[in-house]
Simulated assay, not measured.
Amino acid sequence: MILVIMGVSGSGKSTVGSFLSKKLGWPLHEGDDYHSKENVEKMASGVPLTDQDRTPWLLCLHDIIQREMCAGTNAILTCSALKKLYRQLLLFGSRALNPSSASHQPDSVGGVLFAFLQGSYELIHTRMVARKGHFMLASLLQSQFDMLEPPSESENALTVDIQKSVPEIAAEIERALSTQQ
């Protein structure tokens, strides 16, 4: 099983991912660690990433998902996955960019669950302003909300309210995982 913890910056992906990784004993792949130097510099200077900026990063994360699935291991990946296209890139790689094959692809892949950490702009902005040492500026949060396409049920996605505590969020995700295996 591959768990993709998704949501806008500041929604708690790393915190929830780390908590679940320790609890379940699954490896955690922190999506931010795979951004190019150019992407990090762009975000750190307050410039939102474009689809073209994100595509190589998402294809790299697709490779991680494929590697873990081929090995038959459980794993957690954190990634904003803001648009359906981005989630399709995570699942299908570069095939998602081909219009003729993309129209015939399903919305989900067995063995991959998306956990969408959902919260209000105000709550997440407050969290981002308070955190230290992250390259993503709070001023970019609105651009993430503007492009956000929440996942549908057909994408094998669970939506979790981030007003809950981390253990409550983790328990909700664990319940969803137990129905998948």
Rank of each mutant, 00 (worst) to 15 (best):
V4H: 04
G7R: 01
S11Y: 09
G12P: 12
G17P: 14
G17Y: 15
F19C: 09
K22A: 05
K23P: 02
K23C: 01
G25E: 08
W26R: 01
P27S: 10
L28W: 06
E30H: 09
G31R: 15
G31W: 08
G31S: 07
D32R: 00
D33S: 09
D33L: 12
Y34S: 07
Y34N: 03
Y34H: 08
S36G: 11
K37T: 13
K37R: 11
N39F: 02
E41D: 13
M43V: 01
M43C: 02
S45Y: 00
G46E: 07
P48K: 02
D51N: 11
Q52T: 04
Q52F: 05
Q52C: 01
W57D: 03
W57T: 07
C60G: 14
L61M: 15
L61G: 15
H62G: 05
H62D: 11
D63K: 15
I65P: 04
Q66F: 13
R67P: 01
R67Y: 13
E68F: 04
M69G: 07
C70M: 14
G72Q: 12
T73K: 15
I76T: 13
L77G: 06
C79Y: 02
A81G: 07
K83Y: 06
K83M: 06
K83W: 09
L85R: 12
L85D: 12
L85M: 13
Y86M: 07
R87M: 05
L90A: 12
L91S: 01
L91N: 05
F92Y: 15
R95I: 05
L97S: 03
N98K: 10
S100H: 03
S101F: 01
A102M: 08
S103I: 09
H104A: 13
Q105G: 02
P106G: 11
P106M: 02
D107C: 13
S108R: 07
V109I: 07
V109Q: 14
V109M: 11
G110E: 11
G111T: 04
V112K: 00
V112G: 02
V112D: 13
F114S: 04
F116W: 08
F116H: 14
G119Q: 01
S120H: 03
S120M: 07
S120V: 00
L123C: 10
L123K: 10
I124V: 15
H125G: 08
H125N: 14
T126W: 09
V129A: 06
V129E: 11
K132D: 11
G133M: 11
G133V: 09
G133L: 12
L140H: 10
S143P: 15
Q144A: 11
D146F: 14
L148Q: 00
P150A: 01
P150W: 02
P150Q: 03
P151I: 08
P151F: 07
S152Y: 03
E153S: 09
E153V: 00
S154Q: 07
E155K: 00
L158K: 02
V160C: 01
V160Q: 00
D161I: 02
D161C: 08
I162G: 00
I162V: 15
K164N: 12
S165E: 12
S165W: 03
S165N: 06
V166W: 10
V166N: 09
P167N: 06
P167L: 09
E168G: 07
E172S: 14
E172D: 12
I173L: 03
E174Q: 13
R175N: 13
R175W: 05
A176Y: 02
T179M: 10
Q180P: 00
